[in-house]
Nucleic acid binder design. Sequence first.
DNA 1: CCAGACGTTGTT
DNA 2: GTCTGG
DNA 3: CCAGACGTTGTT
DNA 4: GTCTGG
Length: 227
Amino acid sequence: MCARYALFGPFSPGNLVPGFVEHVINPLAGFAHYNIAPSLVNPVVVAGGGGPGLESMRWGLLPHWAKDPKIAYSTINARAETLVDKPAFRDAWRRGQRCLVPVTGWYEWVDQGGKRKQPYFLRAADESNPMMFAGLWSRWTDADGKQVATYTVVTTEAMGEVRRVHDRQPQVLPSEAWDTWLQAPVPEAAALLQPIVTALRIHPVGSDVGNPRNQGPSLVERLADAS
DNA sequence: CCAGACGTTGTT
DNA sequence: GTCTGG
DNA sequence: CCAGACGTTGTT
DNA sequence: GTCTGG
């Protein structure tokens, strides 16, 4: 899957996620483009909009028992097929700590046979609203006793045109499933973890998307197709 | 019993 | 080539 | 996932 | 915290 995804606007808290305003934490009001990377704080949607210790969330789920926060770099994704059993994710799953991750799109890098990998932007066909990835979140306390909230993006088998660039993709949830994912009992949420065809536009972009220090709308401008 | 992992992607 | 930081 | 570092001695 | 490997 993506080790980068993108969210851009301008969005305000009011239109970031229509109907879910009260659930959004850290909405990053006013940003024009956000190139998201592991360990960075960005918007997520949780039932009730968070609370103490949930003022913001970092990408890369830290289980409550984690000692080294570096493991967050390898818990940016949780496989839908196995998250129920994996020690790193199952506690969050059992506790119903699910979230929605709003994005405009995500990136995939395609191997070019020796040459440098070509990044592509997979962009929601509906540009007016973010799409939603399924996520899990966790509370973690660092060595100084400071509370940190983190989350992971669920992945599943790629479907439709995504398969041209990769065999896995984030678990996208259709709008009618959002409330269920946030609020329903575990068995109902489990039923939503199914591969889904998503309406996307896919186009090549510049290699500068690979560095999260690079920000701005120019990152996702279409690159002329090579061949 | 203790020590060490606990995860994903992709690549070999 | 391989590990770390983001 | 990609980008970027990858080393030592000594000095601030 | 809890499981696996030694």
